[in-house]
Amino acid sequence: MDGINIVTAAELVPEIGNIYRFSNADKLARFAGIAPIRFSSGGKGKDQASGQGNVLNSIFHNLAVQQIQVAKGKNKRQRNPLFYKFYQRKLAEGKTKKQALICVMRRLVNIIYSMMKNKTEYRALSPLTELKAE
């Protein structure tokens, strides 16, 4: 995957550990501090990403930023057009930049979980395929 080099992979694998200890990608997202947690008091509350500050959360944040980057200069080429389009769609839905970035992070968790669980390499979607909304 564009943005994941040997160093990033070497950080991801030990931080995640044995992928089979997570029954699904939601559990991995929760472990990484990306899944929403209910913060409430007095019967009122809201869901927020906990962002527990662990190393895994930081790795996924950096990956998400890399996926939505746009090159500076004349060509303005996106690093990953599908993730960039997904991010822009989340912004258009009324999410803040931070919330939209968390959506990208969550999508990355799903992809990396699947790759590790099924022992497969990343296969980019064809240009005609779009990421589904969450």
Rank of each mutant, 00 (worst) to 15 (best):
T129K: 15
F86K: 09
N110M: 10
I112L: 14
S114C: 12
K119I: 13
F86C: 10
V109K: 01
K44N: 11
Y122Q: 10
T8V: 15
K76S: 07
A9N: 10
N62V: 04
K132G: 12
R38A: 11
G94M: 06
K76V: 10
G73M: 13
V109R: 00
K119Q: 13
L108K: 05
V109E: 00
K98G: 03
I6V: 13
D47C: 01
Q67W: 02
A10E: 11
Q88R: 15
L28F: 01
A49F: 00
G33R: 07
E15C: 14
R123S: 12
K85F: 04
K46M: 10
M1L: 10
T96Q: 03
S50I: 14
A25S: 14
Q99H: 04
N24G: 07
V65L: 14
D2H: 09
T129H: 10
T96L: 07
Y84H: 13
F31D: 05
I102A: 06
K95M: 11
E130N: 14
A92R: 15
D26F: 03
L56M: 06
E130H: 14
C103I: 03
N110R: 12
Y84K: 14
S50T: 09
Q69R: 15
L56C: 12
A71N: 06
T96D: 02
H61A: 05
R21Y: 03
K97P: 00
G53Y: 06
A32P: 06
Q69Y: 03
I111W: 00
F22A: 04
T96S: 15
Y20K: 11
P14E: 09
A49W: 00
L12S: 07
K76G: 07
D26Q: 04
I68K: 04
I59E: 02
A71M: 12
A35F: 00
